[in-house]
Design a binder for these strands. Structure first.
Lengths: 136, 136
DNA sequence: TTACATGCAAACTGTTTGCAAATAT
DNA sequence: ATATTTGCAAACAGTTTGCATGTAA
């Protein structure tokens, strides 16, 4: 078994997920390259191209499990579909309205200042920033 | 016909929308008070309580028309449902994770700084900021 | 009178779920 | 051996659409 596969298996184990055939294959697809953004449907297509037999239902379940385990995060762009992001660190996004794609903005570049007091009894769990770009 | 009703009618006319019974009634519901956030379903319930007969399909159509006309804007929180906002000016939001409600943050309080260069050939069409709050 | 708006039901999209068969431990 | 995971199809929620009927101009 190749080393990179063991890494994926350990990653899943650490997250408390059994390293099943499908989960390992999907994790390799998702985490092989650098950071990326995708929908469930996109991953389904890629899995088919890679001859990995996984049902769409399992992809949804897996992406949600990965998200719960902190391996992915969701990005809310509009109501039509859920996008996932392999970069789980605190960062913001450019959203290309022309083609619906996302590009990361590294946090150290960008700051949100002047935040008013938050309601008592609450904590900030996350700040989402989406810079929507349109073709000129 | 009361004065406030004329205002609504003019507002619709200015937006290029015929002031039909349903559109006038919905506009009064939506724009009577100050700024507010809501889903299509919520407005459907309110219309029923107010004994205004409007089908859910018409509410969806109307909210989308109002949005296209610039009378409303959409707020993307998560994929599960579309939220609308009567405040169409540039402003940001607190999102209460506990109950799914939204509260406006006035723009003059909050600034996004250090934005990196945007890709050539594009313009910023809007910046969305959502501060997610969880109960402590 | 005529173009546009409405209501209903049916279609549709993205997502979740129930359950029998398959699999990891 | 046993608890978990998978795949399928069916269920589901939110939203949109086709078409006959109603209405504003």
């Amino acid at each position: 078994m190749p080393v990179h596969m063991c890494e994926v298996i350990n990653k899943l184990r650490d997250a408390g997920l059994r390293p099943t055939r499908q989960r390992v294959a999907l994790a390799e697809l998702l985490f092989a390259g650098g950071d990326r953004h995708f929908s469930a449907e996109k991953i389904h297509e890629e899995a088919e191209e890679a001859r990995i037999p996984v049902s769409l239902a399992t992809i949804y379940n897996t992406l949600n499990q990965f998200t719960d385990a902190g391996l992915l995060r969701e990005v809310a762009i509009d109501g039509s579909r859920t996008l996932f992001d392999t970069n789980t660190s605190n960062h913001y996004h450019f959203f290309m309205e022309s083609d619906g794609s996302l590009v990361d903005i590294e946090t150290h570049d960008l700051k949100v200042i002047g935040l008013p007091e938050i309601p008592p009894g609450t904590d900030i769990s996350r700040i989402d920033v989406i810079v929507r770009l349109a073709d000129k």
